[in-house]
């Protein structure tokens, strides 16, 4: 291949004046992590609420939960980000819209909300599925010793369901990290965006993207190992969650 490799470019100063290109990528990594973690919290909270709602014995609530899931699942993430970023501020009352548009961390906050709600529909599906795979008798046994519905969920169904869900939730968290790259379209300088900027400034296309690739692979490995450790810590002797 007729390409002039120059790895030293990573240590050359970047035109943004904040250190080297490597520092630029590291800044990107920080934004990727911050965005993914915050969006994941949003996804977990809303996804759990909606996921539980879909398993409760009220038809209308389950329907509402289904509608929520379908709404956020069937519109591409990029389009959802554009809706949050460009459209929602226009639809708010004028003063609010101006306030939202002038927020200092606008792209970051938009990404957290947008990716968070997008992922929450996936979390909700996992939560409902996790609860539904538990034997029906578990719910009955909780009820039979006099627990209320809320207590049955709190002490019996959810602790088991979350253990069963841990592997799929891990991959949803990894998806959240990957999805955070979509936020470069609304101006968030996360890792992919930083690599893209480095490529544009330095013309060293492959160093930029190779470095980003390696960082993503490392991030992926760290999260996977971390979650495996968590899985082992919360595993219940004699109970195989894989069954």
């Amino acid at each position: 291949m007729d390409y002039h490799w120059n790895w030293a470019i990573l240590w050359a100063p970047s035109p943004d004046g904040n250190g080297t290109y490597f520092d630029m990528l590291m800044d990107g990594l920080k934004w990727t992590i911050a965005t993914s973690v915050c969006a994941w919290l949003v996804a977990l909270v809303f996804g759990s609420l909606v996921g539980v709602a879909r398993t409760l014995p009220f038809k209308w609530l389950a329907r509402l939960g289904d509608a929520y899931v379908e709404l956020f699942r069937n519109i591409p993430l990029l389009v959802q980000l554009f809706l949050w970023f460009f459209v929602i501020p226009e639809m708010l009352p004028h003063d609010w819209g101006t306030f939202v548009k002038q927020l200092r961390y606008g792209p970051f906050l938009t990404a957290v909300v947008g990716i968070g709600f997008y992922m929450s529909s996936r979390v909700a599906m996992q939560v409902s599925a996790g609860i539904n795979t538990l034997p029906r008798g578990q719910r009955m046994a909780g009820t039979a010793i006099g627990l209320t519905t809320a207590q049955t969920y709190r002490y019996i169904l959810l602790p088991m369901a979350y253990r069963i869900m841990l592997p799929p939730l891990t991959s949803e968290f990894l998806n959240t990290i990957k999805n955070s790259s979509v936020a470069l379209t609304i101006g968030l300088m996360e890792l992919t965006g930083s690599a893209r900027a480095m490529q544009e400034f330095s013309f060293q296309v492959f160093e930029a993207f190779t470095a980003a690739t390696v960082i993503y692979l490392l991030l992926n490995a760290v999260v996977t190992i971390g979650m495996r450790m968590l899985e082992r810590r919360v595993s219940v002797p004699g109970f195989n969650a894989g069954k």
Partner: peptide, 20 residues
């Protein structure tokens, strides 16, 4: 109902102990 159920003991075919 929770109060009533607390006073009625029940044993199930598949035990239904809480595995966690």
């Amino acid at each position: 109902l929770p109060k009533l159920r607390a006073r009625v003991g029940m044993v199930f075919q598949h035990f239904e102990l809480f595995p966690h």
